[in-house]
Design a protein around this nucleic acid. Structure first.
Lengths: 191, 191
DNA sequence: CCTAGCGTGTGATAAAGGTCACAGCGGATC
DNA sequence: GATCCGCTGTGACCTTTATCACACGCTAGG
C-alpha cells in the first residue's frame, strides 16, 4: 500500500500515515475507460479531475475548422481534466478522451475541497502540484515565444521521450502547434 | 483600510477580519522602483513574489540571439516574479523590470509559507490564485495552438484593452511572439 | 484473403511571418 | 533650439510553415 502510485506522488510533497492515506483514497472513485472512449464531452460539466493510474488520456479543443488542438497528454501519475470547467463549475470547452485503455482515480471538486479542509497537508499538496503545473505551462509558453517548430519538437522529445513512442506523430504535431506534414519533414532532418 | 488593494483581492476569495489583514500585511515588505529599474537580474535568486500596487512590471527572457521574449506583464493587482526561481529557490533565468515607476509589496517564500501555515485561509487564497493563473496560461497556450498572429493580437486587445495603451507596441509584439514589423502591419489591417 | 481506414511520408505550391534597411515623428535632455 | 533616442511604419526580399494531393504500409474486421 505504501507503493500506491497516488500515495507515492503525495509523499513526494507531504508525509502521510497509513490511516491518512486510506482517508484520502476514500475521496476518489476508481474508473476504467476503453481506448477512444470520451471521458468528457464538449459542453458537459467537468465533474472530476482524473489521476491516471494506467493508460493515456488527452485534453484537446476542436476549433471551428474541425481541427483539433491537443492541450495536454496525461500518462501514468498525471492529473488531467478541463481545469477551467472543473474549477469554475462551467461547461467544458475541451474534450478529454483516452488514447489507450485507462485506469484512473476520479476526484470531484467537492471532495477536493473537503480533503483540503479536513487534511491541511492535502491542500499543501494541491498547491504545490498546481504551482508546478503553472511553472511547466510558463516554460511551454516561452518555448512558443522563442523556438521554431524544430526546436519545440526537439525540446519535447528530450522532455518526454516516452510519449513519442506511445502516441501517433500527428498528435505530437497537434500538441506542438504544427501540421503533421511539417513535423514529418522536421523529424527526418533531426536524425 | 478595507479598501487596501491587497485586501480587496484576498477578500474576493476569503473573508478577513481587520486583525487578520494586519497580520497578513506584516508579512509583506513595501518596495518602490523607478521606470527601467531591474527588479530581478538573470542569475540572481528570486527572493520575492511582488504584488503590484501601482505601476507596471514585466517578466522576460533574453535569448541567445539577444532578443527578449515577454512572458508576462504585471499591472496593478497582479502578482509577478520568476515563478520557478522563486518557488524552487533556484537562480533566475528570467528578468523582472519596471516599465513605469512602480510600488509593490514583496512577499518572501518563507513568509508565504508562514502565512499559509498560520492562516489556513491564506493557503486557500494562494491555491485559488495559482489555479486561476494556471487556467489563464492554458488559454494562452490554446491561443498559440489555434490562432495566427492577427487573432492573437485581437484576443489580447479585448482581454486587456488597458495594456495596449500603456506599453510600446514592440513589447506587445514580443508578448505575442511576433516581430514588431509584423504586428505593425497586422494592426493596420485591423481598423 | 480482401479491403477499409489510419498513420505516415513527400512533392508542388501558397501563405504567413521574419529580416534588413531606411525614414519620420515626438519627447527628453542639455 | 539643436540633438539624440525610443518608437513606429513600410518596402523588398527571404525563410518557415501550411495546404493540397497522392502514395504506401500496416492492421483490424468481415
Amino acid at each position: 500500500m505504501k507503493s500506491h502510485p497516488l500515495r507515492r506522488q503525495i509523499e513526494e510533497i507531504v508525509k502521510l500515515s497509513d490511516d491518512e492515506f486510506v482517508f484520502v483514497l476514500e475521496h476518489f472513485r476508481p474508473k476504467t475507460f476503453k481506448k477512444h472512449q470520451i471521458v468528457l464531452h464538449e459542453g458537459d460539466y467537468a465533474h472530476f479531475d482524473y489521476f491516471v493510474v494506467e493508460g493515456l488520456m488527452r485534453v484537446s479543443r476542436l476549433d471551428l475548422d474541425g481541427k483539433d488542438h491537443i492541450l495536454q497528454f496525461g500518462m501514468e501519475n498525471w492529473w488531467i481534466t478541463d481545469a477551467e470547467a472543473f474549477h469554475r463549475k462551467s461547461k467544458s470547452t475541451l474534450i478529454v478522451d483516452c488514447l489507450e485503455d485507462t485506469k484512473a482515480l476520479a476526484l470531484s471538486l467537492e471532495n477536493k475541497e473537503k480533503l483540503s479542509r479536513e487534511l491541511f497537508k492535502m491542500q499543501s499538496f494541491f498547491l504545490k502540484k498546481t504551482t508546478n503545473g503553472y511553472i511547466a505551462l510558463q516554460k511551454r509558453i516561452l518555448c512558443f515565444l522563442s523556438s521554431n517548430a524544430h526546436e519545440r519538437y526537439h525540446n519535447l522529445t528530450t522532455l518526454y521521450p516516452g510519449l513519442i513512442q506511445r502516441v501517433p506523430k500527428s498528435m505530437i504535431a497537434s500538441y506542438l502547434g504544427v501540421t503533421r506534414e511539417t513535423l514529418s519533414r522536421l523529424s527526418k532532418a533531426d536524425t
